[in-house]
Amino acid sequence: MTEPVIVVDRLTKDYPVGFWRPRPYRALDALSLEVAPGEVFGCLGPNGAGKSTTLKLLLGLVTPTSGTAHIFGRPVSSVASRERVGFLPENPVFYDYLTGEELLTYFGQLCGLRASEARRRGTALLDRVGLGAERRLAIRRYSKGMVQRLGVAQALVQDPDLVILDEPMSGLDPIGRRDVRALILSLRDEGKTVLFSSHILSDAETLCSRVAILAAGRLQALGSMTDLVQFSVRAWELLLDGVDATLEHRLRETGATMTTLSPGRVQVHLPGTQPPEPLLQWANGAGARVLALQPVRETLEDVFLKHVEGKRRDVPGTTGGA
Protein backbone atom coordinates (compact mmCIF):
# COMPACT_ATOMS: atom_id res chain seq x y z
CA MET A 1 0.00 0.00 0.00
CA THR A 2 1.42 3.34 -0.96
CA GLU A 3 0.64 6.37 1.14
CA PRO A 4 -1.74 8.82 -0.52
CA VAL A 5 -0.12 12.08 -1.57
CA ILE A 6 -3.11 14.18 -0.59
CA VAL A 7 -5.58 13.35 2.15
CA VAL A 8 -8.48 15.71 2.62
CA ASP A 9 -10.87 15.04 5.47
CA ARG A 10 -14.17 16.89 5.85
CA LEU A 11 -12.54 20.11 4.78
CA THR A 12 -14.84 23.09 5.20
CA LYS A 13 -14.35 26.77 4.51
CA ASP A 14 -16.63 29.62 5.45
CA TYR A 15 -15.88 33.12 4.23
CA PRO A 16 -17.35 35.95 6.23
CA VAL A 17 -19.41 38.18 3.95
CA GLY A 18 -20.99 41.51 4.70
CA PHE A 19 -19.29 44.44 6.31
CA TRP A 20 -21.45 45.36 9.28
CA ARG A 21 -22.68 41.95 10.29
CA PRO A 22 -20.41 39.40 8.61
CA ARG A 23 -22.17 36.11 8.10
CA PRO A 24 -20.36 32.95 7.14
CA TYR A 25 -20.67 31.92 3.53
CA ARG A 26 -19.85 28.30 2.93
CA ALA A 27 -17.45 28.07 -0.01
CA LEU A 28 -16.54 24.45 0.65
CA ASP A 29 -18.59 21.95 2.58
CA ALA A 30 -17.04 18.87 4.20
CA LEU A 31 -14.91 17.76 1.28
CA SER A 32 -13.16 14.41 1.71
CA LEU A 33 -10.92 12.82 -0.86
CA GLU A 34 -7.56 11.17 -1.38
CA VAL A 35 -5.12 11.41 -4.23
CA ALA A 36 -2.66 8.56 -4.77
CA PRO A 37 0.92 8.92 -6.05
CA GLY A 38 1.20 9.09 -9.81
CA GLU A 39 -2.41 10.08 -10.33
CA VAL A 40 -3.59 12.86 -12.58
CA PHE A 41 -6.55 14.10 -10.62
CA GLY A 42 -9.07 16.55 -12.02
CA CYS A 43 -11.10 18.92 -9.91
CA LEU A 44 -14.15 19.90 -11.95
CA GLY A 45 -17.09 22.12 -11.33
CA PRO A 46 -18.93 25.21 -12.52
CA ASN A 47 -17.92 28.75 -11.54
CA GLY A 48 -18.01 29.27 -7.83
CA ALA A 49 -18.05 25.54 -7.08
CA GLY A 50 -15.18 25.78 -4.62
CA LYS A 51 -12.31 24.46 -6.76
CA SER A 52 -9.91 27.33 -6.14
CA THR A 53 -10.87 27.39 -2.48
CA THR A 54 -9.93 23.72 -2.23
CA LEU A 55 -6.56 24.23 -3.91
CA LYS A 56 -5.77 27.29 -1.80
CA LEU A 57 -6.61 25.35 1.34
CA LEU A 58 -4.10 22.70 0.24
CA LEU A 59 -1.37 25.33 -0.13
CA GLY A 60 -2.10 26.94 3.22
CA LEU A 61 -3.12 30.22 1.56
CA VAL A 62 -6.50 29.94 3.23
CA THR A 63 -7.14 28.41 6.65
CA PRO A 64 -9.94 25.87 6.92
CA THR A 65 -12.93 26.57 9.13
CA SER A 66 -12.96 22.89 10.04
CA GLY A 67 -11.59 19.62 8.77
CA THR A 68 -8.01 18.69 7.92
CA ALA A 69 -5.81 18.27 4.89
CA HIS A 70 -2.43 16.55 4.62
CA ILE A 71 0.13 16.51 1.84
CA PHE A 72 2.79 13.82 1.96
CA GLY A 73 1.55 13.08 5.48
CA ARG A 74 2.15 16.60 6.71
CA PRO A 75 -0.61 18.98 7.75
CA VAL A 76 -1.06 21.75 5.20
CA SER A 77 -0.62 24.35 7.93
CA SER A 78 3.08 23.41 8.11
CA VAL A 79 5.64 25.01 5.83
CA ALA A 80 7.24 21.61 5.29
CA SER A 81 4.09 20.32 3.55
CA ARG A 82 4.91 22.63 0.63
CA GLU A 83 8.50 21.49 0.12
CA ARG A 84 7.67 19.01 -2.63
CA VAL A 85 4.70 20.87 -4.08
CA GLY A 86 4.48 23.23 -7.02
CA PHE A 87 1.47 25.51 -7.42
CA LEU A 88 0.04 27.53 -10.27
CA PRO A 89 -2.51 30.03 -8.89
CA GLU A 90 -5.64 30.97 -10.80
CA ASN A 91 -4.92 33.99 -13.06
CA PRO A 92 -1.40 34.26 -11.66
CA VAL A 93 0.31 37.57 -10.96
CA PHE A 94 4.06 37.76 -10.53
CA TYR A 95 6.56 40.48 -9.68
CA ASP A 96 6.44 42.44 -12.90
CA TYR A 97 9.72 44.28 -12.26
CA LEU A 98 11.60 40.98 -12.62
CA THR A 99 12.44 39.13 -15.79
CA GLY A 100 11.16 35.60 -16.26
CA GLU A 101 14.60 34.26 -15.48
CA GLU A 102 14.95 36.35 -12.32
CA LEU A 103 11.55 35.24 -11.09
CA LEU A 104 12.39 31.57 -11.48
CA THR A 105 15.75 32.09 -9.80
CA TYR A 106 14.06 33.84 -6.88
CA PHE A 107 11.36 31.19 -6.53
CA GLY A 108 13.98 28.46 -6.81
CA GLN A 109 15.84 30.04 -3.90
CA LEU A 110 12.62 30.16 -1.91
CA CYS A 111 12.42 26.41 -2.46
CA GLY A 112 15.87 26.02 -0.97
CA LEU A 113 17.93 25.81 -4.18
CA ARG A 114 21.23 27.64 -4.46
CA ALA A 115 21.09 30.66 -6.77
CA SER A 116 23.19 29.04 -9.51
CA GLU A 117 21.14 25.85 -9.39
CA ALA A 118 17.88 27.82 -9.40
CA ARG A 119 19.02 29.82 -12.40
CA ARG A 120 19.97 26.67 -14.29
CA ARG A 121 16.59 25.04 -13.59
CA GLY A 122 14.83 28.28 -14.46
CA THR A 123 16.45 28.50 -17.87
CA ALA A 124 15.58 24.89 -18.65
CA LEU A 125 11.99 25.37 -17.54
CA LEU A 126 11.50 28.54 -19.57
CA ASP A 127 12.61 26.58 -22.61
CA ARG A 128 10.24 23.80 -21.66
CA VAL A 129 7.21 26.11 -21.59
CA GLY A 130 8.27 27.94 -24.74
CA LEU A 131 9.51 31.17 -23.16
CA GLY A 132 13.20 30.64 -23.88
CA ALA A 133 13.36 33.72 -26.08
CA GLU A 134 11.60 35.94 -23.53
CA ARG A 135 13.59 34.98 -20.47
CA ARG A 136 15.37 38.34 -20.22
CA LEU A 137 12.16 40.30 -20.78
CA ALA A 138 10.51 42.06 -17.81
CA ILE A 139 7.33 40.23 -16.82
CA ARG A 140 5.52 43.57 -17.16
CA ARG A 141 5.91 43.09 -20.93
CA TYR A 142 4.54 39.56 -21.02
CA SER A 143 1.18 38.80 -22.62
CA LYS A 144 -1.50 37.00 -20.61
CA GLY A 145 -0.69 33.65 -22.10
CA MET A 146 3.02 34.19 -21.52
CA VAL A 147 2.37 34.91 -17.85
CA GLN A 148 0.32 31.71 -17.69
CA ARG A 149 3.19 29.73 -19.21
CA LEU A 150 5.57 31.36 -16.75
CA GLY A 151 3.17 30.29 -14.03
CA VAL A 152 3.44 26.70 -15.16
CA ALA A 153 7.23 26.97 -15.21
CA GLN A 154 7.46 28.41 -11.69
CA ALA A 155 5.26 25.60 -10.39
CA LEU A 156 7.96 23.15 -11.45
CA VAL A 157 10.96 25.08 -10.21
CA GLN A 158 12.15 22.70 -7.49
CA ASP A 159 11.20 19.58 -9.47
CA PRO A 160 8.25 18.91 -7.13
CA ASP A 161 6.61 15.51 -6.71
CA LEU A 162 3.14 17.02 -6.55
CA VAL A 163 2.01 19.69 -8.99
CA ILE A 164 -1.20 21.59 -8.28
CA LEU A 165 -2.54 23.70 -11.14
CA ASP A 166 -5.56 25.99 -10.87
CA GLU A 167 -7.04 26.25 -14.37
CA PRO A 168 -3.78 25.69 -16.19
CA MET A 169 -5.38 26.13 -19.63
CA SER A 170 -6.93 29.50 -18.93
CA GLY A 171 -5.73 32.27 -21.20
CA LEU A 172 -3.81 29.93 -23.48
CA ASP A 173 -4.13 29.66 -27.23
CA PRO A 174 -4.78 26.23 -28.82
CA ILE A 175 -1.05 25.56 -29.09
CA GLY A 176 -0.55 26.55 -25.49
CA ARG A 177 -3.33 24.21 -24.40
CA ARG A 178 -1.82 21.35 -26.34
CA ASP A 179 1.57 22.10 -24.77
CA VAL A 180 0.13 22.11 -21.27
CA ARG A 181 -1.72 18.86 -21.93
CA ALA A 182 1.52 17.30 -23.15
CA LEU A 183 3.33 18.68 -20.13
CA ILE A 184 0.82 17.16 -17.71
CA LEU A 185 1.19 13.80 -19.42
CA SER A 186 4.97 14.01 -19.30
CA LEU A 187 4.81 14.88 -15.59
CA ARG A 188 2.69 11.79 -15.12
CA ASP A 189 5.23 9.73 -17.02
CA GLU A 190 7.93 11.06 -14.70
CA GLY A 191 5.92 9.58 -11.84
CA LYS A 192 4.67 12.86 -10.45
CA THR A 193 1.22 13.46 -9.05
CA VAL A 194 -0.85 16.17 -10.70
CA LEU A 195 -3.95 17.83 -9.34
CA PHE A 196 -5.63 20.40 -11.51
CA SER A 197 -8.89 22.25 -11.71
CA SER A 198 -10.64 22.97 -14.96
CA HIS A 199 -13.89 23.80 -16.68
CA ILE A 200 -12.76 22.09 -19.82
CA LEU A 201 -14.20 18.63 -19.61
CA SER A 202 -12.54 17.24 -22.67
CA ASP A 203 -9.17 17.98 -21.06
CA ALA A 204 -10.16 16.17 -17.92
CA GLU A 205 -11.51 13.29 -19.99
CA THR A 206 -8.25 12.74 -21.83
CA LEU A 207 -5.83 13.52 -19.00
CA CYS A 208 -7.28 12.41 -15.69
CA SER A 209 -7.14 9.06 -14.03
CA ARG A 210 -9.77 10.27 -11.59
CA VAL A 211 -11.96 13.30 -11.21
CA ALA A 212 -13.99 14.99 -8.50
CA ILE A 213 -17.01 17.00 -9.51
CA LEU A 214 -17.82 19.87 -7.19
CA ALA A 215 -20.88 22.07 -7.25
CA ALA A 216 -22.09 24.61 -4.73
CA GLY A 217 -19.22 23.76 -2.41
CA ARG A 218 -20.08 20.07 -2.20
CA LEU A 219 -18.56 16.98 -3.69
CA GLN A 220 -21.11 15.63 -6.18
CA ALA A 221 -19.20 12.77 -7.75
CA LEU A 222 -15.80 11.17 -7.38
CA GLY A 223 -14.19 8.38 -9.29
CA SER A 224 -12.30 7.21 -12.32
CA MET A 225 -13.56 7.97 -15.79
CA THR A 226 -14.88 4.41 -16.15
CA ASP A 227 -16.66 4.65 -12.81
CA LEU A 228 -18.40 7.85 -13.72
CA VAL A 229 -19.02 7.62 -17.42
CA GLN A 230 -21.13 4.83 -18.85
CA PHE A 231 -19.28 3.89 -21.97
CA SER A 232 -22.01 1.57 -23.25
CA VAL A 233 -24.03 2.75 -26.21
CA ARG A 234 -27.12 4.60 -25.13
CA ALA A 235 -28.63 5.37 -28.51
CA TRP A 236 -27.88 5.48 -32.24
CA GLU A 237 -28.02 8.38 -34.56
CA LEU A 238 -28.62 8.01 -38.28
CA LEU A 239 -28.55 10.58 -41.00
CA LEU A 240 -30.68 9.62 -43.99
CA ASP A 241 -31.27 11.25 -47.33
CA GLY A 242 -34.22 10.63 -49.69
CA VAL A 243 -36.69 9.61 -46.99
CA ASP A 244 -40.30 9.29 -48.15
CA ALA A 245 -43.47 9.34 -46.07
CA THR A 246 -43.80 5.55 -45.79
CA LEU A 247 -40.27 5.12 -44.53
CA GLU A 248 -40.73 7.96 -42.12
CA HIS A 249 -43.88 6.36 -40.70
CA ARG A 250 -42.16 3.01 -40.35
CA LEU A 251 -39.17 4.51 -38.55
CA ARG A 252 -41.42 6.39 -36.20
CA GLU A 253 -43.13 3.13 -35.18
CA THR A 254 -39.87 1.84 -33.71
CA GLY A 255 -39.90 4.70 -31.22
CA ALA A 256 -37.25 6.71 -33.03
CA THR A 257 -37.46 10.48 -32.93
CA MET A 258 -36.84 12.39 -36.14
CA THR A 259 -35.70 15.79 -37.14
CA THR A 260 -36.15 16.90 -40.72
CA LEU A 261 -33.10 18.88 -41.74
CA SER A 262 -34.24 19.62 -45.29
CA PRO A 263 -36.83 17.94 -47.51
CA GLY A 264 -35.98 14.23 -47.60
CA ARG A 265 -33.01 14.60 -45.27
CA VAL A 266 -33.76 13.33 -41.80
CA GLN A 267 -31.83 12.81 -38.63
CA VAL A 268 -33.04 9.77 -36.73
CA HIS A 269 -32.43 9.25 -33.04
CA LEU A 270 -32.99 5.64 -32.01
CA PRO A 271 -33.03 5.45 -28.23
CA GLY A 272 -32.30 2.50 -25.97
CA THR A 273 -30.49 -0.66 -26.91
CA GLN A 274 -32.33 -1.50 -30.16
CA PRO A 275 -29.99 -2.61 -32.90
CA PRO A 276 -29.89 -0.17 -35.82
CA GLU A 277 -29.50 -2.83 -38.54
CA PRO A 278 -33.26 -3.27 -39.36
CA LEU A 279 -33.52 0.45 -39.94
CA LEU A 280 -30.65 0.31 -42.38
CA GLN A 281 -32.42 -2.44 -44.33
CA TRP A 282 -35.69 -0.48 -44.50
CA ALA A 283 -33.86 2.56 -45.65
CA ASN A 284 -32.13 0.54 -48.32
CA GLY A 285 -35.41 -0.99 -49.46
CA ALA A 286 -37.04 2.45 -49.70
CA GLY A 287 -34.17 3.77 -51.79
CA ALA A 288 -32.90 6.20 -49.12
CA ARG A 289 -29.21 6.79 -48.65
CA VAL A 290 -27.47 6.35 -45.26
CA LEU A 291 -25.15 9.31 -44.78
CA ALA A 292 -24.06 8.56 -41.25
CA LEU A 293 -24.57 6.08 -38.46
CA GLN A 294 -23.08 6.63 -35.07
CA PRO A 295 -23.45 5.39 -31.51
CA VAL A 296 -24.33 7.86 -28.78
CA ARG A 297 -22.31 7.33 -25.65
CA GLU A 298 -22.37 9.19 -22.39
CA THR A 299 -19.61 11.77 -22.08
CA LEU A 300 -18.13 13.39 -19.05
CA GLU A 301 -20.15 16.41 -20.01
CA ASP A 302 -23.40 14.48 -19.54
CA VAL A 303 -22.21 13.25 -16.17
CA PHE A 304 -21.10 16.73 -15.27
CA LEU A 305 -24.41 18.31 -16.22
CA LYS A 306 -26.34 15.62 -14.39
CA HIS A 307 -24.42 16.31 -11.19
CA VAL A 308 -24.21 20.03 -11.46
CA GLU A 309 -27.51 21.22 -12.83
CA GLY A 310 -29.97 22.47 -10.27
CA LYS A 311 -27.41 22.34 -7.48
CA ARG A 312 -27.75 25.41 -5.37
CA ARG A 313 -25.93 26.50 -2.33
CA ASP A 314 -28.12 26.36 0.74
CA VAL A 315 -28.79 29.49 2.69
CA PRO A 316 -25.35 30.81 3.59
CA GLY A 317 -23.95 29.51 6.80
CA THR A 318 -26.80 27.19 7.62
CA THR A 319 -25.42 24.23 5.72
CA GLY A 320 -23.78 21.30 7.38
CA GLY A 321 -23.53 23.07 10.70
CA ALA A 322 -26.64 21.63 12.26
Binding site: L61, P89, N91, V93, F107, L110
Partner: peptide, 14 residues
Protein backbone atom coordinates in the same frame (compact mmCIF):
# COMPACT_ATOMS: atom_id res chain seq x y z
CA UNK B 1 -3.94 43.38 -3.38
CA UNK B 2 -2.26 42.29 -6.59
CA UNK B 3 -2.24 38.64 -5.47
CA UNK B 4 1.43 38.12 -6.23
CA UNK B 5 1.59 36.81 -2.67
CA UNK B 6 -0.20 33.60 -3.75
CA UNK B 7 2.64 32.15 -5.76
CA UNK B 8 5.25 33.29 -3.24
CA UNK B 9 3.60 31.93 -0.12
CA UNK B 10 2.80 28.67 -1.89
CA UNK B 11 6.56 28.08 -1.79
CA UNK B 12 8.02 26.54 1.35
CA UNK B 13 8.59 29.89 3.03
CA UNK B 14 6.89 30.77 6.29
Amino acid sequence: ERRSVHATLAKPVS
